[in-house]
């Protein structure tokens, strides 16, 4: 960075021009990554915006409004019990299905990100030699990979973070209106409304990058990256419920549903009632954050290990 504090008048006008352009615009390798993956990054931004539109539509669309109206005042004197309409009201069932479907989409971002990272971000560049083009344009392979990972990671973190926060707000709304029922269906919901979902998308990025560096070809890396990321998320899922010590079912401070003590029964409320998954074991509500953070930590650590291996693989093959 050149400064204008020198006592001597600047001989050339050029530094002022570069300072002006470099302060506001991305430059160097950052510019290259943004330019090269412009389409993919726009697709991701569009996905986040459209998803938020869908969340708003679920809540403020006519079906969501009808579902909320059906349950208005339930459980209080003069109204029906909250679970009476649970399976019979079309608007309620549709809204609940949509909530679960959105959760499924969030849950499965990692394989999609891995496929993209394997194919377009790294694999294609290694396959057609444009990675080497960058390395002979004064960018060391390590810095090349670092920027290649950091830029998408920033986009993924912000985008997935916004999505998770929005989804959480939607779930809070549905809980307030007694729309969710305790049991199998909230398994996905519960785990998708915290930072772990963001961590999984970053894990997908790391898996795809490593697959590309090992295979060095776009299509095989796409397939292997997506498959590995999907397997990893599936493999971690069963352990999530047991990441934190569980309490005993029946303890009054733990999982307790009015009118029901069986798995799959009753109204679910992740704020007031309390469980991670009553079908597996009971967890009080204040366990939510520790469980999420432990899961997030494990997933991020796994991603970090994969990134480290990626740098090793790159280093071993290239000077």
């Amino acid at each position: 960075m050149s400064t204008s504090t020198s006592p001597h008048p600047a001989p050339a006008p050029a530094p002022a021009k570069t300072a002006k352009t470099s302060r506001l615009r991305p430059s160097g390798q950052l510019w290259t990554v943004l330019r090269l993956h412009r389409t993919a990054l726009w697709v991701w931004v569009a996905f986040v915006v459209i998803s938020i539109g869908v969340l708003l539509w679920v809540r403020y669309g006519s079906t969501g409004v009808d579902a909320a109206a059906t349950l208005a005042g339930c459980g209080t004197a003069g109204h029906r019990a909250c679970d009476e309409w649970m399976w019979s009201d079309t608007a309620l069932v549709t809204t609940r299905d949509r909530l679960l479907e959105i959760g499924q989409v969030l849950r499965n971002l990692a394989p999609v990100v891995a496929a993209w990272a394997g194919a377009a971000l790294i694999g294609r560049e290694l396959e057609n030699g444009t990675a080497e083009l960058a390395w002979t344009q004064s960018v060391s392979p390590a810095r090349w990979l670092a920027t290649k990972l950091a830029v998408p990671a920033a986009f993924l973190t912000v985008g997935a973070g916004v999505l998770v926060a929005s989804y959480r707000m939607l779930l809070d709304w549905s809980v307030t209106h007694h729309m969710l029922r305790a049991g199998y269906e909230k398994y996905t919901l519960y785990f998708n409304i915290g930072p772990a979902t963001v961590a999984y998308t970053l894990l997908g990025l790391a898996v795809g990058a490593l697959a590309a560096l090992l295979l060095r070809r776009a299509v095989p890396a796409l397939v292997a990256g997506a498959a590995a990321a999907w397997l990893l998320t599936v493999a971690i899922a069963p352990w999530r419920g047991s990441l934190w010590p569980v309490g005993a079912v029946g303890d009054s401070s733990l999982w307790h549903l009015p009118g029901s003590d069986s798995c799959g029964g009753g109204i679910y409320n992740h704020n007031l009632i309390d469980s991670v998954d009553p079908c597996i074991s009971a967890q009080p509500a204040d366990h939510y954050l520790p469980v999420q953070l432990v899961e997030t930590g494990i997933v991020l650590a796994l991603a970090a290990v994969l990134v480290l291996i990626s740098f090793r693989v790159l280093h071993r093959r290239n000077a």
Binding site: Q29, W31, T32, R35, N128, G129, L133, Q137, V139
Partner: peptide, 19 residues
């Protein structure tokens, strides 16, 4: 190897950014 989706001007701009 060159990046197919870039224009010639963007390709040279990339050279400028990377050097």
């Amino acid at each position: 190897p060159l990046i197919p989706q870039l224009s010639i001007a963007d390709t040279l701009r990339m050279g400028q950014e990377l050097n």
